[in-house]
Amino acid sequence: MDDTPRTLTATELQAYFAFTEVGSLLRHAVEQQLRDVGGLKYVQFQLLARLGDAPAGQQRMTDLADGVVYSRSGLTYQAQVLEQRGLVTRAPSPDDERSTVVTITDDGRAVLAAVFPGHVEALQQLLFASLSDADVDDLARILGRAAEHLRANPPRSATPRRRG
């Protein structure tokens, strides 16, 4: 058995550095737009966007934490901040009193409606403008495959809780 540590090829290293640079630059611009227009942190936007797309505008806290890959306690704090702003409500789940259900409010939908045009514009200008439709298809396929692989052995914050 070969115990020699594996190294990255020059192309793998180039891809990794490009991926992290794009992610950092894009996230910085997106976070700035979300703060300026909606007074939101990125994770708060993710929470509202997931609720906005969810049936009846609600999800269990654990499902939200699993989806946004954020610690459950950290997401609880962010939901509390959004609740204080009147953007979400939290209540015990009617199906399981140990679970909390978060629901987006009309004010939460209004904040999403305010931030989405600038959010989409930032993504189009900063990420997609330099790519062809085929490039975007390839990017979606490649990153989808990587996400699927990472979700096969996720960090605890992304591991769905076992239901008793």
Rank of each mutant, 00 (worst) to 15 (best):
Thr76Arg: 11
Arg35Glu: 14
Asp95Thr: 10
Arg109Trp: 05
Phe45Tyr: 13
Pro92Arg: 14
Asp107His: 10
Phe116Tyr: 04
Tyr70Gln: 15
Pro94His: 04
His28Ala: 13
Asp96Gly: 01
Val102Ser: 11
Phe116Trp: 06
Val22Pro: 00
Leu48Glu: 05
Asp53Cys: 08
Thr103Arg: 05
Thr103His: 10
Arg27His: 15
Gln78Thr: 01
Arg60Cys: 02
Glu31Tyr: 06
Ile104Phe: 01
Arg109Met: 06
Arg50Glu: 03
Leu26Ser: 15
Leu64Val: 02
Thr76Tyr: 08
Gln78Ala: 09
Arg27Asp: 11
Gln59Val: 00
Gly52Glu: 03
Glu31His: 09
Pro92Asp: 10
Ala65Arg: 08
Asp66Ile: 00
Val68Thr: 11
Met61Arg: 09
Arg35Gln: 14
Gly108Ile: 11
Glu31Met: 11
Leu64Glu: 02
Asp63Ile: 03
Ser99Val: 02
Arg50Phe: 13
Asp63Ala: 12
Leu75Lys: 01
Leu51Asn: 03
Asp106His: 09
Val43Tyr: 10
Ala110Trp: 06
Ser71His: 05
Lys41Cys: 06
Tyr77Glu: 12
Leu87Thr: 05
Leu34Glu: 09
Leu87Ala: 05
Asp96Arg: 13
Gly74His: 09
Gly38Val: 08
Arg27Cys: 13
Thr89Asp: 03
Arg109Ala: 04
Arg60Pro: 00
Ser93Val: 02
Arg27Glu: 10
Arg85Ile: 02
Ala56Lys: 06
Thr89Leu: 07
Arg85Trp: 06
Gly23Cys: 11
Ala114Phe: 01
Val37Asn: 01
Thr105Ser: 02
Leu25Ile: 13
Met61Thr: 13
Gln33Leu: 09
Val30Leu: 15
Val37Ser: 03
Gln84Phe: 00
Met61His: 08
Glu97Met: 04
Asp96Lys: 11
Ala113Asn: 15
Phe116Leu: 11
Phe116His: 07
Ala91Arg: 10
Ala110Thr: 15
Val115Arg: 08
His28Val: 15
Ile104Pro: 02
Gln33Gly: 13
Ala29Tyr: 02
Ala91Pro: 00
Val115Met: 06
Asp36Glu: 15
Gly74Arg: 11
Val69Glu: 01
Ser73Thr: 12
Ala29Glu: 06
Gly108Pro: 03
Lys41Leu: 14
Gln84Cys: 04
Leu64Tyr: 02
Arg27Trp: 12
Val43Leu: 13
Tyr42Phe: 15
Arg90Ile: 05
Val111Leu: 07
Asp106Pro: 04
His28Trp: 14
Gln32Phe: 10
Gln78Ile: 00
Val88Cys: 12
Met61Ser: 11
Asp107Ala: 15
Gln33Lys: 15
Ser71Trp: 07
Glu97Ser: 11
Leu26Pro: 13
Asp66Tyr: 07
Arg60Glu: 07
Arg98Gln: 04
Gly23Phe: 05
Gly57Leu: 12
Arg60Leu: 02
Gln84Thr: 14
Gly38Phe: 07
Met61Val: 06
Ala49Leu: 04
Arg72Val: 01
Val43Gly: 00
Glu83Ser: 08
Tyr70Ser: 12
Ser93Gly: 01
Thr62Ala: 14
